[in-house]
Simulated assay, not measured.
Amino acid sequence: MNKIVKDFFKSIALLIIVSLLAVWITLYYTPNPLFTIANLIPIEANLTKPDNYLTIEKSTKVERNIVYSEQYPNSLLDIYSPIHSNDKLPVVLFVHGGGFFKGEKEMAKYFGRTISSNGYAFISINYDLVPNATVFDQVKQINDSIQFITDNADEYSLDIDNINLAGSSAGGFLALQLLSSYHNEIYAKKIKIAPVEKIKFNSLLLYSAVYNLSEFQHYDSNFLTSYLLSKIGWGLTGERSWESDSVLGAILNQNNYINKDFPSIFITDGNTNTFTEQATNYSNRLEETGVFVQTLFFNSREEVGHGYQLNMHTSASKKAVKESLNFLERVNK
């Protein structure tokens, strides 16, 4: 019996080794299996309702799963808006997070209703995810949603003179990419963005965004982390040798494309396991350039995590909502 048990465990160990070796060999040719495995791991998004959600829900409506582009498979959006409104509404276009390879528009289902109840059309979009798309495909897809908003403004009562971009985590990076491309023709050509005619973004709101992906080209860590980052970066950019490509690195660093003509920008982040340092550096650069920036950061006495604004029963989220609305009111007059 002991021999049977030993042989069984030897077989299991051999199977595991062979499987790991097969994955390792496959990853030499493509990063896709890594994202397949990553998508099997649930990520807690910490979505909670605000205390007054029943009141908010009664005062708003949502039009779901509207197709905004025929060019990309995952091109659906939801529009949250006040029930009692006869005028065209200023738009908040929200790009969800999820590391570029996870997430969905429903991540903003409570946050979106809350913002819209204050007189906004809050639009939350899906987009194709890595490895089926690169970050450059994703930003082009988001630009398609701007074209959709422009073409369908009358049908959905949207004020295209007041379009406010917004994004959380990876979605913040994509929203910032789009804004940068609208203010820099050279950058727009590099990432192949054709700005929608006559569109000038009113503002940008960034929640726990990443600002500089080039930091991960030479990330100082252990072998396994460095190896995984090399494969993730390959999937994100579509370039196998992305770590050694300085031109690509410059494109992935949004600090390089700050423009004095940027609209007002709202920046917030937590202080635990997030991109606080990148956020503060970017906001400082904006101020130095003369761009109006409103920030919300937290001291060490209160632990506030990544994407905290979606955890809406917390005091930090309540503060973010209040300051976001104050910011939007100021820039949408």
Results as ranks from 00 to 15, higher is better:
D137T: 13
A166R: 02
I163P: 00
T134A: 05
I149L: 11
T134H: 02
G167F: 05
E185N: 14
Y156Q: 08
E155V: 11
E155T: 13
E185R: 12
N143K: 09
G172N: 05
I186Y: 08
Q147F: 04
A175H: 01
L158A: 06
T150Y: 14
D161Q: 14
G167S: 08
S157L: 13
Q138P: 11
I163M: 06
S168E: 15
L176H: 09
F136V: 05
I146F: 07
S181H: 06
F148W: 15
Y182M: 08
N162W: 04
D159S: 08
D144L: 02
T134N: 07
D154W: 00
N143P: 09
L158H: 03
T150W: 13
I163Q: 00
S157R: 14
I160Y: 06
A166Y: 01
E155P: 04
D159P: 00
F173Q: 06
I160F: 10
V135P: 03
K189V: 11
G167P: 09
L178M: 07
N132I: 14
I186G: 00
D151N: 13
L174K: 01
S181N: 08
T134M: 00
F136A: 01
F148R: 01
Y187F: 15
I163V: 12
D144K: 08
L174A: 06
K189I: 11
D159A: 08
L165I: 10
Q138K: 06
K189P: 09
F173G: 01
N164P: 03
E155C: 00
D159G: 03
Y156K: 09
D144G: 06
Y187M: 11
N152F: 05
D159W: 03
Y156V: 06
D161N: 15
T150Q: 15
A170D: 08
D144C: 07
S180E: 04
A170I: 05
Q138Y: 04
N184P: 12
I160C: 05
L174I: 14
A170V: 03
I146W: 07
D161A: 12
Q141V: 07
F173V: 06
S168W: 12
Q138I: 15
Q141F: 02
D161G: 14
I146K: 04
S168P: 09
N162Y: 09
I149E: 01
F173E: 03
A166G: 13
L179Y: 01
D151E: 13
E185I: 13
K190M: 14
N184I: 11
S169P: 07
Q177K: 07
D159E: 10
S180K: 06
Q147A: 15
E155D: 13
E185Q: 14
D144Y: 01
F136I: 10
Q138R: 04
K190H: 12
A175L: 05
A166T: 13
S145C: 13
N132R: 14
Q147K: 15
Q177S: 12
I142L: 15
D144I: 00
N184W: 04
N132P: 08
T150P: 04
I186E: 12
D159V: 04
Q141Y: 03
A153Q: 14
N162G: 09
D159M: 10
S168Q: 15
L179G: 00
